[in-house]
Design a protein around this nucleic acid. Sequence first.
DNA 1: GGAATCGTTAAGCACATGCTTAAGTATCGC
DNA 2: GCGATACTTAAGCATGTGCTTAACGATTCC
Lengths: 115, 115
Amino acid sequence: MLNDSARLDLAFHALADPTRRGFVARLTRSPATVSELARPLRMSLPAVMQHLRLLEASGLIRSEKKGRVRTCRVEPKALAAAELWIGEQRALWEGRLDRFETYVEELKDRESRNG
Amino acid sequence: MLNDSARLDLAFHALADPTRRGFVARLTRSPATVSELARPLRMSLPAVMQHLRLLEASGLIRSEKKGRVRTCRVEPKALAAAELWIGEQRALWEGRLDRFETYVEELKDRESRNG
DNA sequence: GGAATCGTTAAGCACATGCTTAAGTATCGC
DNA sequence: GCGATACTTAAGCATGTGCTTAACGATTCC
């Protein structure tokens, strides 16, 4: 089992590449197939596959295959975890723990409405 | 000159390592010297230096040398940029651009008070 | 059934990462 | 000045990343 730190490693690493951030950005708008994601890029399909595998391993996206088509969609929880870590640092930097707590509640609230 | 995407690459990559996140977390509390950062770790000083160099290149921290001591501190702007990107994705996922705009204003506001 | 479509696996290659040890340099305290 | 302190540089090494091409597998369409 993966601990929180290892999950953050994977999430941040996944986000550290413009192609992968592009996929996440594309998938936030709506789900898409592997070919749809690959089409605008000048990159071989296997390369796209590797990025998607990494994104899926990080928990940022999930995918499902029906027939010969694989459809991908975002999984907002991993994104929220990364945002939460950064938010925590800023809260501490700002020296306002109270504000951090309301921030966490806000995030949880959004998640429960959308996740 | 570095564009936004390249900056995000550097910032997320810097955050994708637990040692470096540890440094950022430590430095959010207060500035620290290289040795202070290295002390709790079982890692050679050159290894620590490399992490710090990367953190500084990413803009997440800055450092200054006085005499033989180098003191490091966080630079919250790069952190805010990373958080902003994630926040944007969530806003789009939630389908509420209006909410995103208030979120941006909120971030800018915090920055101007703290940066 | 055979061709086109969509995805997947495997192999390989150039380069980056994350450490190490060994050997510097620059300051500080006496 | 001289030893201790606080980095810093350089070299090297195992492993990981991000691509490629070539070949394979599984559906779908006619």
